[in-house]
């Protein structure tokens, strides 16, 4: 059991980790190896540093939290739930924590697929555990080809009549035994309810449900699994980085705003300190 689990190891996640570690908390920092900071060639607008490369700052941040005792793991988060503590399932293991900090980074643009937005909740879903139940004995498809997509498909397979993996042009994963279609998707069919998927070659597939699980589980997908409120695709927080769920805090690009290292570090510090307060109050309560 960790005191705090932080998802994301960019400036916001590492800054939160610094304050938690220095407050003597056991911290797990999970990263799938990416950060928009790595795309910054040089930064010249961060306090005290005349010029630094994004990748150098990122590495130094990680080194700093490791030195302070944080456990850093390069694993992909696949699922998130709550049973009194927060339970994270990655592609490697499951972890529990008393507090959770979302530092999941910039929000991915949604797929420009005709019908996707309109059919949300009418067959299009972003959470197999939440919505799979409604597709018992129906035809479902999972959009994606990574570990996250396979995880969602594994939840659906025992429930649905058929579970098909749609990769939208990418290669079908070799480890999957599910039926798959690797053609490009051009549109979703249905007005009142999703009825099918159309492919670039003119063919189509009957489906009642489409579960979107492209790439890694992003802010949006994780928020839906746990029940975090989103505002315009960003995690909703108050001024002290509290989300709508007690014990869950958020910082950095995933809450919107300036998308700067300076603000991410500041928000991370607040989130870390607030998480520390939460953990200590919980300990006193017990």
């Amino acid at each position: 059991m960790f005191d705090a689990i932080i998802i994301g190891a960019g400036p916001a996640g590492c800054s939160a980790a610094l304050y938690l570690c220095r407050g003597n908390a056991r911290v797990l920092l999970l990263t799938h190896g990416g950060s928009s900071l790595l795309q910054a060639h040089t930064l010249e607008n961060y306090y005290g540093l005349t010029s630094v490369s994004g990748s150098e700052l990122y590495q130094q941040g990680l080194n700093q939290v490791r030195r302070l005792g944080a456990t850093v793991k390069e694993e992909e988060v696949l699922d998130l739930s709550y049973d009194g503590n927060f339970i994270l399932q990655t592609n490697v293991a499951a972890y529990t924590g008393k507090a959770l900090i979302m530092a999941t980074g910039s929000v991915r643009a949604s797929l420009p697929l005709p019908g996707l937005k309109e059919l949300e909740g009418k067959g299009v879903s972003y959470c197999a555990v939440c919505d799979g139940f409604f597709f018992r004995k129906k035809k479902v498809a999972v959009l994606g080809n990574g570990a996250f997509a396979l995880h969602e498909a594994a939840v659906l397979e025992p429930l649905a009549a058929t579970t098909t993996l749609l990769t939208d042009g990418a290669a079908l994963p070799a480890e999957s035994k599910l039926p798959g279609v690797d053609k490009k998707i051009t549109a979703l069919e249905g007005t009142e309810h999703l009825t099918g998927v159309q492919f670039a070659d003119g063919s189509r597939l009957d489906v009642d449900g489409l579960f979107v699980a492209l790439g890694t589980a992003d802010t949006n997908a994780l928020a839906r699994k746990l029940g975090l409120v989103l505002e315009k695709n960003y995690l909703a927080v108050d001024q002290t980085m509290h989300t709508n769920i007690p014990g869950v805090f958020a910082a950095g690009d995933c809450i919107g705003g300036l998308n700067q290292v300076a603000t991410a570090v500041g928000e991370g510090a607040i989130a870390g300190m607030e998480a520390l307060k939460f953990i200590r109050a919980q300990a006193q309560h017990k």
Binding site: R224, K225, L226, G227
Partner: peptide
């Protein structure tokens, strides 16, 4: 809602 739905318990 449903009892097995985590986000429902948050709401």
């Amino acid at each position: 809602w449903a009892p097995w739905c985590g986000p429902c318990r948050m709401l």
